[in-house]
Nucleic acid binder design. Sequence first.
DNA 1: ACTGTTTAAATAAACGGTTTTAAAGCCCGT
DNA 2: ACGGGCTTTAAAACCGTTTATTTAAACAGT
Lengths: 342, 342
Amino acid sequence: MAQKIKLSTIAETLGVSTATVSLALRDSPLVAAVTRERIKEQARALGYIYNRRAASLRTSRSGIIGVVVHDIMNPFYAEILKAIESELDRDRQTFILSNHYDSVEKQRNFVETLLQLGGDGVIMSPAIGTPPEDIRLAEDNGMPAILIARSIDGLDVPIFRGDDSYGISLATNHLIGLGHRTIAMVGGTDQTSTGRDRYQGYVNALRKANIEVDPGLRIPGPRTKQGGFEAAVHFLSLPQKPTAAVCWNDLVAIGLMNGIARAGLVPGRDVSVTGYDDLEEAAIATPALTTVWNGQSEVGRNAARALLDKLSGSHEPDGIHLIKPEMRIRQSTGPLKPHPEG
Amino acid sequence: MAQKIKLSTIAETLGVSTATVSLALRDSPLVAAVTRERIKEQARALGYIYNRRAASLRTSRSGIIGVVVHDIMNPFYAEILKAIESELDRDRQTFILSNHYDSVEKQRNFVETLLQLGGDGVIMSPAIGTPPEDIRLAEDNGMPAILIARSIDGLDVPIFRGDDSYGISLATNHLIGLGHRTIAMVGGTDQTSTGRDRYQGYVNALRKANIEVDPGLRIPGPRTKQGGFEAAVHFLSLPQKPTAAVCWNDLVAIGLMNGIARAGLVPGRDVSVTGYDDLEEAAIATPALTTVWNGQSEVGRNAARALLDKLSGSHEPDGIHLIKPEMRIRQSTGPLKPHPEG
DNA sequence: ACTGTTTAAATAAACGGTTTTAAAGCCCGT
DNA sequence: ACGGGCTTTAAAACCGTTTATTTAAACAGT
């Protein structure tokens, strides 16, 4: 590192003031075209690097946007993030990513760090148990927040997510339509708004079909492949002998199918399984997974767009923005087999 | 946002100078213990937020570390990133993540942005075709770089990765030991150092066993499940009738197994398949995947540790750091079946 | 030649911290 | 009363930009 090149370095070598250099580099009409070109050329020649910290100290806009979700490695969030990324890229915003792994403390640290860095805004899928104050902390310090995927009570920040209750009822109805009556719900928790909504959608669909709801058919667990895989044992040993499973998401469904296959049964024929999210992976699973498209890319794109609009002052987003899920029928579900002794 | 609280706000309300406040908050021995407590208490009460941009302008340390890989959503990188994250967290460093999707330009933009933000260092798995200058740009501007997973010729920055040639030869030897002679290599590219190393490992193992190397058995392709899935058709229609496949990674292997299963064959019995990386998913695939552990967590942890050491000046890392891969034998490989007409 | 306008560039004051240097206050011995 | 050595605090310079305000120069118009 020979020597840091700054505005004043350029100014000196050219015999102009730093103000002129600053204006020239930002294409201000206040500096003559010929001067501007001379300055830009020199900046390039010297390898000048714009110092954003200095600039943002003055302008109080950093171009940084934070995004925090449960786990960026989870394909569900990864698909959302990809959409956010491409939207923010277009606006040349830098985005800082973080996992909170459902630790409220980790999430708070992230928000705090973002505030220290002068983040312009934050998009978050809040950790389980996030107190509203943690979000207000951001807003109170001039950093607007947008929620995705999960709601928080007692807060009126904009939120973008799929309509979980409706989505799960689609899957449940699909299974009911195939003749299934003993349908388990596998994976996930009831501690989030999402969890409660999904369980509600499952219950509603059953009730509407006059099927009694048996709490013993609810198998909560991790929202991962591993979780689904491990739930298979429990699922197969239920005294109620369920013939189908509505899974929390595609990962759980794929794990469950693997577990079922290990036990020598054929998913899609012996047991019907639905996923949720329609990850890219769902279509190439074996058997191809029947699932519910949950609009990850829409959620990501819209949330990012909303934040950018808010920052630019062009439009103030507000309230809940629900995406309507859609059924994707593939090979992991099939008609109820006549019972051996039936 | 009532009013920005800054050092001077605290100083005024307490009737001391900003210098004292600054020193107190950073636990300097230059300010009396009782004063320090009074100041810290007031800072807390007022909801003071440390302004890192202002501070780093003076100190030229931002606490920001960049990490850029091909695709953070790829579980291979995700596992590395998790290790990096936990290591950096311990040192209270903020890390900024980015994908380059093998676009040299996107990668350069990232490095440029990081320089503008005053990043302290960068960890990268360079995009295919990265010119050494792009890395020197970082180093020349005082931002040390550490490479992971992929090398670049003509550069002497430290690099951490698995020993690919050795690792693939482990997998190939395992198949040869089971009696296989016609072994395809599926997925990936030969455009990266990794790719060349892996192909070399495969070739070396075959040669040592006096098996002729047939270039027609090399099926390059995307390093994804989708890629493996689609390669199945090609694989099954090869005139040489391979009985086994050494796959670029676990994702390709799982995709290939799915594709083989779709064609009515049973992976692990009719065709032996090896993966590479030993992702969490490998163990729960059906059949459980025989693969090679590639030390993702080691790579991530060591790379992060090396960068932090370099930044703190405590130790200057250098050269290549190879992790020795290890075989993980599961159910996706088995002895060569006697040929139908043999 | 003298205003009055435009246009181009320079000056200087922020922005919010850190850190060096200097000063003030106090204790104590002589 | 004085001064040496400590501890504690204040003052001021600085980090690299942006931007409002001035200044200077050029040019018209009367």
